[in-house]
């Protein structure tokens, strides 16, 4: 349960090191309009955003890593 409250979309991103998670951080920052949380050990990124899932997935894939949408994670 790495995703904190309010973070909605959960993605798998094949990150292996801090360089990877930093790259993910940069591409998401550059996209803008996102709040996110990266769980490097579990290779998960949780995103709360005004952008749709397709845009977010495209952005994550820009890093050149495998990425897929895991689903919605409801805030509790």
């Amino acid at each position: 349960m790495a995703c904190v409250d309010l973070l909605k979309h959960e993605f798998f991103v094949d990150m292996t090191c801090e360089g990877c998670s930093n790259a993910v951080t940069r591409v998401l920052h550059r996209l803008g309009g996102v709040q996110f949380d990266i769980d490097l050990p579990n290779k998960k990124v949780c995103i709360d955003s005004e952008h749709n899932v397709d845009t977010l997935l495209e952005t994550l894939k820009k890093t050149g890593k495998n990425a897929s949408y895991l689903g919605e994670k409801s805030a509790q």
């Binding site: 292996t16 090191c17 360089g19 990877c20 930093n22 940069r26 890093t63 050149g64 890593k65």
Partner: peptide, 16 residues
């Protein structure tokens, strides 16, 4: 700037 290990290197080499 920003690479930390060999997998970073490989990711860039493969992608580009």
């Amino acid at each position: 700037e920003g690479m930390t290990c060999n997998s970073c290197v490989q990711t860039i080499e493969q992608h580009v």
